[in-house]
Design a protein around this nucleic acid. Structure first.
Lengths: 192, 192
DNA sequence: TTCTAGGTTGGACACGTGTCCAGTTACGTG
DNA sequence: CACGTAACTGGACACGTGTCCAACCTAGAA
């Protein structure tokens, strides 16, 4: 079942609904770092938001959709942040560092989103594409004019990989930042 | 609940059990590409293997554990394959190509394993580490002596990333092979 | 043959998921 | 104020998941 939120892109949803969805988002975020994504239930989120489960389900098709939506929000929240640094290496590193920091700051969300994005849910699929696009944009902007497509792709893949590894608990999100610095440098070496 | 299979590493399990588990593996693999990982049920696999669900659960802690175990098997099945090629680039590419081919050959398993490996299940966690180790080994071997650790890590991350993207359906597994060729070349450029 | 583990079984259990829909409540427009 | 519609509710539903355990086979040793 396809649900309301971000369903019709760019179309803000009206007054009452906006409030309800807002309350659901907050409740979701709180619940998430209180009990973690495993224990979180749409019903518990609904309860915390003072709303019935049925209502929650009109906004979010699934737990995974909620996670994806929360992640997307935290991503756009940070959209204004411009890559810092003189050369491409530094700029790309500033992007990965920034993302790693934000993930480290909300570990529960980070842990939730990786599996969530793999869901076959239609609403998740839509967000997945947007999120992927956003990553791509950020790297492209950091690289500057005429980026080598293979390099750009290598960066996106390495970053996704890091996300995956961290999601699996092989890497902590703070490690991730440091490791990616080296990886970025290695990838960009010889690509002035 | 921790289950039998690969629980005590290197310890083959005895006659009767070995047969049962074997039947479960085959049934699992068949079921997997007949109905896909979403629809697959431990109970249905048990049924197909001519075994009760309770029995199946003594071998596999969960659906995810089954997928991880199947993937691990398909990986070791291919362990003897040596990297081909004169230089590091070619050798690494032969590794990624090979993996991509195998994944393309069993798309259902590929689609199943990515989410499965993210499970917090203890049995899955164990396999996850082994699998990660295996990837690392293969790349290290392909790179030859004294590989630059950052390069090695970049490769592993890019590969995991590709796996993730393909798992999300952004990439087909056949695309994956080709794209990785370019990415590998880009990463290795300037690292003789 | 009888005994005894190791394996297997059936079936009930508690819980979570997402769906559905008839009925109720709140809002803003006339 | 009254009324229609948009939003919400409650509660039942079908289904899947993984757990548990007493009873039951079955093969091989005594």
């Amino acid at each position: 079942m396809s649900s309301y939120v971000s369903n019709a892109p760019r179309q803000e949803l009206g007054g009452r609904r906006a409030e309800t969805v807002e309350r659901l988002f907050s409740a979701g975020a709180e619940e998430l770092d209180e009990v973690g994504h495993e224990a979180l239930t749409i019903r518990s989120v609904a309860g915390r938001a003072g709303v019935s489960p049925a209502t929650a389900y009109t906004y979010f098709a699934s737990k995974n959709h909620l996670f994806a939506e929360l992640f997307w929000r935290s991503l756009v929240e940070d959209a204004d942040h411009e890559p810092q640094g003189a050369d491409a290496v530094a700029r790309v590193q500033s992007v990965t560092r920034r993302m790693a920091e934000r993930l480290a700051a909300s570990p529960a969300l980070a842990a939730a989103v990786t599996p969530a994005l793999l869901s076959s849910d239609a609403d998740v699929a839509r967000l997945r594409l947007r999120i992927g696009g956003e990553f791509l944009d950020r790297f492209a902007r950091a690289l500057g004019e005429q980026p080598d497509p293979a390099v750009l792709e290598a960066l996106v893949l390495a970053f996704s990989g890091a996300l995956l590894q961290a999601g699996m608990g092989v890497l902590t999100y703070t490690d991730m930042g440091e490791r990616l610095d080296a990886v970025v440098a290695a990838i960009l070496e010889g690509h002035a």
